[in-house]
């Protein structure tokens, strides 16, 4: 890695577009919510929402679907951000869905609550009658996402129908929906991973500490570094060891792999991404289940 790698400037037109989308959501829907995971993409969304409605407050709540398997650093950061911005926070727990018998905990070595959170999310949408949920998905992440609209209509059951998407032309956004339907909105659709990082850098946005290098107990599995935790089912051969790592993407502790890295500031993170041979979602264990894992989950209501 060369120190002289130039870090590209953030294309400001992307921010203009995203702020425009945020304002369309607030104007066209009665009860929007911003889906907050504590990852860098949803943190970026919070910043955009702040900017879109300044000097007013963010006119919708943040909704966090808590799997119970989060990195503690993420939760700490979430609570700090809410205090800092004065945003309203709603938390709904996957554990409650499990206790109510609505979903069943997965078993085995690869057990994760990633798929289960869809049910908790759909229940929360129904409970609060949310008609629009803003998410941080980007089209460059994955090929099913590459085909999704900015205003993506979901049916009564929260499902995405990729073959029946509304045409989306120019910057006109059509948020008209029928009763029971809702819309998933993706304001940073056109951002790449690099755009998110250059934005974080230029805006000086705070992010959870796990994005920076740190010592952590990990195990090796399938050629990836998995964070060791009480939530991960390990075999006898999988002996935890200490490693200097950071996280490039942040999901659950059971489905996010770490990368060996000493990057302790944003510039180094960006240089690392610029020279990376592996894509961001290469570190998402949940996507490796099949070639169409993401599309399948989206059709069932995942965001």
């Amino acid at each position: 890695m060369s120190i002289t790698t130039t870090i590209p400037a953030f294309p400001r037109m992307l921010e203009d577009e995203s702020i425009y989308i945020m304002r369309e959501v607030a104007a066209q829907f009665e009860k929007p919510a911003l889906l907050f995971s504590g990852g860098k993409d949803s943190i970026t969304l919070v910043r955009l929402a702040q900017k879109a409605f300044w000097p007013g407050k963010i006119p919708f709540p943040l909704l966090h679907v808590d799997t119970g398997h989060n990195f503690p650093e993420t939760i700490e950061f979430r609570d700090w951000l809410v205090r800092e911005t004065g945003a309203e926070l709603i938390v709904r727990y996957v554990q409650d869905s499990i206790d109510a018998g609505k979903v069943k905990e997965e078993t085995g070595k690869y057990a994760s609550r990633n798929v289960l959170q869809t049910v908790t999310l759909l229940d929360a949408i129904e409970e609060f009658k949310f008609d629009a949920c803003i998410g941080g998905a980007r089209r460059d992440e994955e090929k099913a996402r590459a085909k999704e609209r900015i205003f993506s209509v979901r049916d009564d059951f929260g499902q995405w129908n990729p073959k029946k998407q509304r045409p989306e032309l120019f910057d006109v956004l059509n948020g008209k929906i029928n009763l029971g339907e809702n819309v998933r909105v993706f304001p940073i659709s056109n951002w790449t991973e690099l755009d998110v990082w250059t934005y974080i850098k230029e805006e000086g946005i705070a992010i959870p500490s796990i994005y920076y290098t740190h010592k952590r107990n990990v195990i090796e599995r399938d050629g990836m570094i998995w964070p060791h935790s009480e939530f991960l089912n390990t075999t006898e051969e999988e002996v935890p060891f200490e490693e200097i790592v950071r996280f490039r993407t942040v999901g659950d502790m059971t489905c996010t792999a770490a990368v060996a890295s000493t990057a302790n500031n944003i510039d180094d993170i960006i240089r690392e991404i610029l020279s990376a041979k592996i894509s961001e979602r290469g570190a998402r264990i949940d996507d490796k289940r099949s070639e169409a894992a993401m599309e399948q989950r989206k059709k069932e209501g995942y965001f």
Binding site: R139, D140, A146, K147, Q165, S189, N190, D195
Partner: peptide, 15 residues
């Protein structure tokens, strides 16, 4: 191919 796919690339000058 059924639907429009969005693809991203950049050079030092442009996205």
């Amino acid at each position: 191919t059924i639907d429009v796919a969005h693809i991203y690339f950049s050079t030092p000058k442009r996205k």
